[in-house]
Measured scan of single mutants.
Amino acid sequence: NITNLCPFDEVFNATRFASVYAWNRKRISNCVADYSVLYNLAPFFTFKCYGVSPTKLNDLCFTNVYADSFVIRGDEVRQIAPGQTGNIADYNYKLPDDFTGCVIAWNSNKLDSKVSGNYNYLYRLFRKSNLKPFERDISTEIYQAGNKPCNGVAGFNCYFPLRSYSFRPTYGVGHQPYRVVVLSFELLHAPATVCGPKKST
Score class of each variant (00 low, 15 high):
L60P: 08
P149C: 07
Q84Y: 07
L131Y: 03
N64E: 14
V77Y: 04
T63D: 13
L60A: 11
P133D: 05
V11W: 08
K48G: 05
A33L: 14
S29Y: 11
N118T: 06
W106D: 01
G172E: 00
Y50S: 03
K26Y: 09
V115Y: 09
Y66F: 12
G117I: 03
N107W: 02
N109W: 04
V37C: 10
A14E: 09
N64V: 15
K148N: 13
I28F: 15
Y143G: 01
D97Q: 12
I104R: 02
T46Y: 14
V181L: 07
V180S: 02
W106V: 06
L41Q: 14
S108F: 01
R78F: 07
H189A: 15
N58C: 07
N147Y: 07
N24F: 06
L187T: 15
N120M: 11
G86E: 01
L187K: 14
G152S: 10
F126H: 06
Y119R: 10
S129K: 14
V115W: 12
T100C: 13
V32T: 13
R136T: 05
S19K: 03
Y121I: 07
K94Q: 05
P54Y: 12
F47I: 14
V77S: 04
P96I: 03
E186L: 06
E186C: 07
G146T: 03
V153P: 05
N147T: 07
C102V: 05
A33D: 05
C61E: 08
V71M: 04
G101S: 01
P177E: 00
K199V: 15
G86W: 02
V37K: 14
C150I: 00
Y50N: 02
L41S: 14
I2K: 14
K198C: 11
Q176P: 00
N40L: 08
V20Q: 00
N151Q: 12
L187C: 11
Y66C: 08
S53E: 15
H175T: 01
I88Y: 01
V65N: 03
L162W: 02
I80W: 02
V103T: 06
Y159C: 00
D68Q: 03
C31G: 05
I88N: 01
R124K: 03
S164C: 06
G174R: 06
C31I: 05
E76K: 03
T3C: 07
